[in-house]
Design a protein around this nucleic acid. Structure first.
Lengths: 202, 202
DNA sequence: GTAAATAGAACGAACATTCCTTTTTTAGAG
DNA sequence: CTCTAAAAAAGGAATGTTCGTTCTATTTAC
């Protein structure tokens, strides 16, 4: 027998996924060839196909990791944090937490995942699950704000949560395209909007 | 001579672009083959290649039309409309105007355009131009609100405009993935956020 | 009748994947 | 500790398919 230490097995797998991620970010899932991934990983075809059974398998693994990154960013703020308005803003922008808003590359990969989810039913299901789960977390925060009178209580918390999460997605799009590190400016804009004088409903 | 009426020429071009658009929406730009487009358009290769010189040409034309759709949605509200808060909200959601928020398909295509812009420098430039132009339009609306005291004036109008446009992008993502026609719920959520009691700066 | 318009077979390149060979690594015997 | 056998891991050429595109023959419209 001659089985290698499993830590080396996982290191190889990670090496391949990292290389694939780099390729996918700049060329998309379907415009990058296997040979691109092989070259980036500095491995041969025989080596890579020992760890992944197909290109779709690599795509699925890469997308799953990207979604897990998003999910963990929301779960991290699930606990008994003091719920005030700034927390919602910071939660949305992921201030202090590198994953979501930290890197332009994560934002770019996430955009690729969105577009891939439009053609892959299984990825679409996974994406929806993360979105629904995040809505629950943010909705809980919003509800606590409403109980404290910090937000109007006559609107379902989930509807407010949807708007906040849309803000996150929109911020990610701009981060992916422009690469700006303008989260401070963004927070300023949000504060200005949220402190607008109340308006009569039409 | 036997040149066909140019209206028929443009009709053929439109027929091809419409078929390609349908393919691209559900399979992405690079996972749809030319034969997919040919079958969807019910034309032969020889016919299609008389109107477009390559697949990339079709992709570029499709993306350009999608961006033009977005640009026109913003330009339409450039005029001397009465600037009140509801107008900003409605502008963001494109209420009453079909193009932007009207169809799930437009939203899906736009997500594909975003991801393609990450790998095509020319498309990225075009996308940025539309974004910058839209920021000018929305920024003008925000500035008029500030002058009327409807929004705090101590924050640059462009920063507020960025937040509003991020809301549009985020709304489009959710529209693309879920296909919900929940613009009313979304507007409710926005109103709730925008009528939050003022908060002390940290 | 003539030239544009279309069809559809044909082509080389590139693709994802497989298969066989070579190298490397470890387990156990001496 | 050393050597050896065996199995795993990696390399890289080979394979069949599919891709985008071109080319030529045929049809269609004026």
């Amino acid at each position: 027998m001659a089985r290698m230490p499993k830590e080396h097995l996982e290191a190889r797998r990670r090496q391949i996924l990292d290389a694939a991620r780099r390729c996918f970010i700049h060329n998309g899932f379907h415009a990058t060839s296997m040979q691109d991934v092989l070259a980036e990983a500095e491995l041969s075809a025989g080596a890579v196909y020992r760890y992944f059974k197909s290109k779709d398998d690599i795509i699925a693994a890469t997308a799953a990791e990207a979604l897990a990154e998003v999910a963990s960013a929301f779960e991290a703020d699930d606990g008994a944090r003091p719920p005030d308005l700034d927390n919602i803003v910071d939660l949305v922008l992921g201030v202090g937490r590198p994953p979501l808003s930290g890197s332009q590359e994560s934002a770019q990969l996430l955009v690729q995942v969105w577009s891939e989810a439009l053609r892959s039913p299984s990825l679409c299901t996974a994406l929806k699950e993360v979105m629904v789960e995040a809505r629950g977390v943010v909705g809980g925060l919003v509800a606590r704000h409403q109980q404290r009178g910090l937000l109007p209580a006559d609107v379902p918390a989930e509807q407010v949560a949807d708007v906040l999460m849309a803000l996150v997605d929109g911020f990610l799009v701009r981060r992916a395209v422009f690469g700006h590190a303008d989260s401070a400016a963004f927070r300023n804009g949000m504060r200005a909007l949220m402190s607008a004088p109340a308006q009569a409903a039409p």
